[in-house]
Amino acid sequence: MVVIKIPASLRKFVGGNERVDVDAANVREAIDALEGAHPGVKAKLCDDAGNVRRFINIYAGDEDIRFLENMDTALDAGSELQIIPAIAGG
């Protein structure tokens, strides 16, 4: 089980949940499983080609996945994904 921690601004796309648990062996599978459970949320995270949008970051544990294997970054049971969007307001 992989834990995806959802920032407050995206919770309305995942039924208000603070975290969503999915079965996944890598980041791509985790996001697809999230989309399967909550259709529409993937478009908020990824562009049409399926890559993470450039103003959003996904961390596996304490590591930015861009500097790991990106969407192919392997996840173990108990891994935690954190989504960090660029927050525009001030």
């Binding site: 450039r54 103003f55 970051n57 930015d64 660029a86 525009a88 307001g89 001030g90």
Partner: peptide, 17 residues
């Protein structure tokens, strides 16, 4: 951390959101 600013339609401001 962030390579580019979010596009205008994504970058909602506090007065709107």
């Amino acid at each position: 951390l962030f390579e580019v600013p979010p596009p205008t339609e994504e970058a909602r401001r506090c007065g709107e959101a």
